[in-house]
Computed example of a mutant assay.
Amino acid sequence: MEYKMMENSFVTDLEFGQLEVSGNADYGFRPYQLLVSSVAVCSGGVLRKILEKKRLSYKDIRIKADVKRNEAGANEVTDIHLHFTLFDVDASDEKLGKIFELTRKNCPIYQSVKDSIRITETYECMNQSAN
């Protein structure tokens, strides 16, 4: 990837399109937002893949990410909490616990940051179709 400096951001062209990154949310995605999104979406994608490999049906997956930053330091990300809501998933709590262990183990972004950012997860199952 190559980034070009703009007046208020840096821009790169990727396969999907242009990505504009800035420390100011008025001019692009903020770096910490991309970091947290990478952890959340990578985890969600691996979770989806594992559910499908195990032939466990589900209707939808939603992920809420809460982030804690150290304002006394460099405002670095210290904690990320991911809350997964699985809709109409056909799996027991015991089986889901094992699936989340596999998800953590097989998510490359999680593995890349786990020693420097505390990542916690919770999940809930909703037995109704997603809206």
Rank of each mutant, 00 (worst) to 15 (best):
Y3K: 06
Y3S: 08
Y3G: 10
K4M: 05
M5Y: 13
E7R: 04
S9M: 00
T12G: 14
T12R: 10
E15R: 12
F16I: 15
L19W: 06
E20W: 05
G23W: 01
A25P: 15
D26W: 05
Y27A: 01
F29A: 02
R30T: 10
R30M: 07
Q33K: 10
L34F: 09
L35W: 07
L35M: 07
S37H: 14
V39L: 08
V39M: 08
V41I: 15
G45N: 03
L47D: 01
K49C: 06
K49V: 09
E52A: 04
E52H: 02
K54E: 15
R55C: 07
R55T: 13
Y58S: 02
Y58E: 00
Y58G: 02
K59A: 09
D60W: 09
I61H: 06
R62L: 10
D66P: 05
R69H: 14
R69V: 11
A72V: 14
V77C: 03
V77Y: 05
D79C: 11
H81T: 14
L82N: 09
T85D: 04
F87R: 03
D88G: 05
D88C: 00
D88I: 00
D90G: 01
A91P: 00
A91E: 01
A91H: 06
A91S: 02
S92E: 14
D93S: 08
L96E: 02
G97I: 12
G97P: 12
T103C: 05
T103I: 06
T103G: 06
K105A: 01
K105V: 02
N106Y: 03
N106E: 05
C107N: 00
C107F: 01
P108T: 01
I109C: 00
Q111K: 09
S112T: 13
K114F: 00
D115S: 08
S116F: 08
R118Y: 14
R118P: 14
I119P: 08
E121V: 01
Q128E: 09
S129Q: 12
A130D: 11
A130N: 13
